[in-house]
Structure formats: C-alpha cells, structure tokens
Simulated assay, not measured.
Amino acid sequence: MTTEEIEAANLGAAPKLNGQVTLREHDPRWSEVFAVEAASMGERLGALDHRVEHVGSTSVPELPAKPVIDMLLIVPDSGDEESYVPPLEPLGFTLAIREPEWYEHRVLRKRFPDDRAHSAETVNLHVLSAGCAEIDRMLLFRDRLRTHEGDRTLYADTKRGLSRQTWEYMQNYADAKSEVVAGILERAAAEAG
C-alpha cells in the first residue's frame, strides 16, 4: 500500500512505526487470549450470524509474532458497521480501519492495559463478509503454516529478517512479506486442489 492508501484507510491519523518490528517467540497464552475475546464477542453479538477465527502469526504454534492477536470476524455484511461495532465497543474495541474498496474490510482494535496477565498488547479484529474470497485465503495460509514445517520456517525466517529493517508503517513490513506469502499460498492451493 502507498502512504496515501494507508492514511486513507485509517480513521484518524495512521499510527507510524518509524522503526523496527518487535517479534516474540510463540506464546501459548495467545490462544487463550483469543478464546476469551471470542467468547466475549459471541455474547455481545447475540443473534447476529457470525463466526470468529484466530488468524495471523499468533495462531500458529512455533511461529514468532508481534504481540498482536489477529482475529477474523465473519458477518453477513461487513459494510453494515451498525450490526457489530456498537455491540463490541463496550469490550474495548474501536473501529480503526475502513477499506470499502477492498472486500468492505474493517479493522477494530483493542489495546490491553500494561498490567495484563498475558503477553498480548493488542487485538486486531478483521471483519469480512461471509463468502469473501479473502477469508479462504487467510484460513488457507494459517492452516498451511500450522501443518507444513518447511513453509513455517521460511515464513519465520522472512519475518525475522524483515523485522530488523526500519519501516515507516507496520503495513510496509506486512507488504514486504507479500512475495513469500504468495508462494506459500500457491503451494497450499496446489495441494488442496
């Protein structure tokens, strides 16, 4: 993404990194944080048809990650923010990113206090509509890394190498992994298909 695209997608000022990315070795408590947050969301979303998945590097055992729990909320219409944003706000979630031109993608963020009893700092809740192709891609990537040591090692090495560089935005770091991610997805799709 360009700087203009990053700034346009963020509600308010896009947070700048202007430094290196901090990675931590996998912490099994990350899956516990996910389970607690998913259960709380389920209670708050009530009758809204939805599904919650743990995605991103914290969802893959043995993979280093930023201390950010990436979650995926699948709803009937991610563009209908009123159906899920107000119910999640009392849990500490705030709408941070709106990308209507990219699958009506939304991101809500929750920051944990410094006295938390686990090693996660933040939750990034990605919201997509049921049937969106990006959902399948995210889950295919996660599942491939969980089950294929070679691709998991390749991705871990890539992350570690890139984390030592200086990035203006976290999105720049994420975009730098695109070629490796595409290769992993291609192998996963070939085996699945």
Rank of each mutant, 00 (worst) to 15 (best):
V33T: 08
M138W: 09
K110L: 12
E89H: 00
F93H: 11
D49R: 14
A192T: 08
M138P: 03
D70Y: 10
T166R: 14
D114G: 15
P87G: 09
D143W: 02
G161M: 09
I97T: 08
L11H: 07
S119A: 11
P90H: 12
E53H: 15
A47G: 07
R51Y: 04
R29E: 14
D175R: 08
P87A: 09
A117E: 12
S57Y: 02
E4A: 13
L139R: 14
L145K: 05
L73E: 09
A174T: 14
E4C: 00
V21A: 02
G79K: 12
V107D: 04
R187H: 12
H148Q: 10
E104H: 14
A182T: 01
R164F: 04
G161L: 10
W167A: 11
L95C: 06
H26N: 10
P100I: 08
L48I: 13
S163C: 15
F34S: 04
Y103E: 13
K159E: 09
T2W: 00
L139Q: 10
T153V: 13
E4K: 07
R144G: 01
R146K: 11
L128S: 01
R137E: 10
E4Y: 03
T2V: 05
V127T: 11
V60D: 03
Y155C: 04
A8S: 07
D27A: 13
G193R: 08
M1F: 11
D175A: 07
H105L: 05
K66D: 10
G79S: 15
L72H: 13
T158V: 06
A96F: 05
E7P: 00
A120C: 09
R29D: 13
E37R: 09
L125T: 07
H50M: 10
S57E: 03
L108Q: 10
S129C: 05
R44W: 13
G42P: 00
R51E: 12
H26I: 02
N124Q: 13
D175V: 03
W102D: 11
L48N: 14
G131Q: 03
L17D: 02
L91P: 05
L139C: 10
A35W: 02
R29W: 03
R137F: 07
Y155N: 02
R164M: 15
L128M: 04
S31E: 15
E99F: 01
S119M: 06
G19I: 03
G12P: 06
I97L: 11
V180I: 14
Y103F: 13
E168S: 09
D136K: 15
W102M: 08
R44M: 15
E5F: 03
L139H: 02
S119Q: 13
E121Q: 07
L108S: 07
V52A: 12
R116S: 15
R111Y: 11
G79T: 12
A176I: 03
M71Y: 05
A120P: 01
M138S: 12
A14C: 06
A47H: 05
P90F: 10
P100V: 05
E62H: 02
W167V: 05
